[in-house]
Design a protein around this nucleic acid. Structure first.
Lengths: 215, 215
DNA sequence: ATTTTTTTAGACAGTATTGTCCAAATCGTC
DNA sequence: GACGATTTGGACAATACTGTCTAAAAAAAT
């Protein structure tokens, strides 16, 4: 008791925290597959290998569990995006190929990853019904991503590597081009190979550089 | 008798066929808002201004109703897309501004329209659970749209208006650029004004022409 | 070894939904 | 107005899910 009293956050009972995680993971999977209304607690408990009561013990009720799922997913996804954003080629030797690699990282780690797909699907499914649930994503997600990416492009332009008039537009179009091919495939759950992603990124950067490259 | 013939618009056309339509419309709206699992027949009946029994009389059961909704939505959306595709500027006087107008039409009539949003949301929500439901869309939808648009661009390129190496890639990138800004806004149900759409289209075409315009 | 916490399985009430059935009301048509 | 088809509201059984409760089992801490 003293141990848990002293550090209730860092050292809770192992299986306790492990089960909590297990439930959260299972809930993420089931909510994303079935939607909020279609998911039920028994599915989640079974998926987590846990009794139904344990789900309630840990997360209160269905809505609280859903909120926890969205929060965790949002945080993980944002963290992943900014980690990848940090690998942007700020001092490029070969801008073209470095942008291709960056695009591949962004697609692989963030857009096509499990978390990314799940979060997007949840937003699409439940975004209108629970708008306040996704305000966090709305504020910390796309707008900050765009701003950060725009700042990088602005710096590249200032350094003479690119010819950009509006970095915000360029950033959004960069992301749009990167996803041009993958967008529809993912909507139907197609599995995308490495080569597909690389080809798509190459096409995107070719067009992006034709539009914004130094001439 | 004569009354319904004289004023079919002012008085609600509550015929057999009209109720069938009314139910289908209401079902479309409710299924898209709530998802398949979240929707229930009473909601749909109320939305249609009809008794629950009438819903069952016309469409059998919930699943058949859902299938009818998806089928109708797919057909309407495809028809709308190809109708808009027919307004592509084949002999452009001012290619730039005509492409902007075309992009606005495509966005307004197809992508941002009620049908377009509904169909996309249903595909995202239920596409994995009922894959066979959307094979029709899969075959007649994006791939044919892409092919048709690619053919138009190829002709423009052949006529010397554009400098395109791969028309298929150009077509997909055109669509991606057109939706660059609107994509996220729509995911959260934002209402988009005419000016937003026009500005977005202008940005898209500027970049597209910088990449593919004759130099 | 003992005590405390956590988990489990199952029962349970309350509620919601689906799909059916039916008699009365309504509508379209003659 | 009369007749047949359609619609309506409500009752109904069957099923499913939520969230609570319990006592027993398991696990963890002391």
């Amino acid at each position: 008791m003293t141990l848990t009293e002293l550090s209730p956050d860092t050292l809770p009972p192992r299986s306790h925290a492990a089960k909590r995680m297990s439930v959260l993971e299972a809930a993420t999977y089931v909510f994303c597959r079935e939607g909020y209304a279609g998911a039920n607690i028994d599915m989640i408990a079974a998926e987590a290998g846990v009794s139904r009561q344990t789900v309630y013990n840990h997360h209160g009720d269905k809505e609280k569990l859903f909120i926890a799922v969205v929060r965790a997913l949002t945080e993980r996804t944002n963290a992943g995006i900014f980690a990848t954003l940090a690998t942007f080629p700020d001092q490029p030797a070969d801008l073209n190929s470095e942008l291709v690699d960056f695009a591949i990282r962004l697609n692989g780690n963030c857009i096509c990853s499990g978390d990314g797909k799940f979060l997007r699907k949840l937003i699409e499914m439940e975004g209108q019904r629970y708008p306040e649930l996704f305000t966090g994503w709305r504020e910390d997600g796309p707008s900050k991503t765009w701003a950060a990416l725009a700042a990088r492009f602005a710096r590249l332009a200032h350094a003479g590597h690119l010819d950009i008039d509006d970095p915000d537009v360029a950033a959004r179009q960069f992301l749009a081009l990167i996803n041009a091919d993958l967008h529809v495939s993912m909507a139907l759950g197609d599995k995308l190979g490495e080569d597909r992603i690389r080809e798509s990124a190459t096409n995107a950067i070719r067009t992006f550089m034709r539009a914004y490259g130094k001439r």
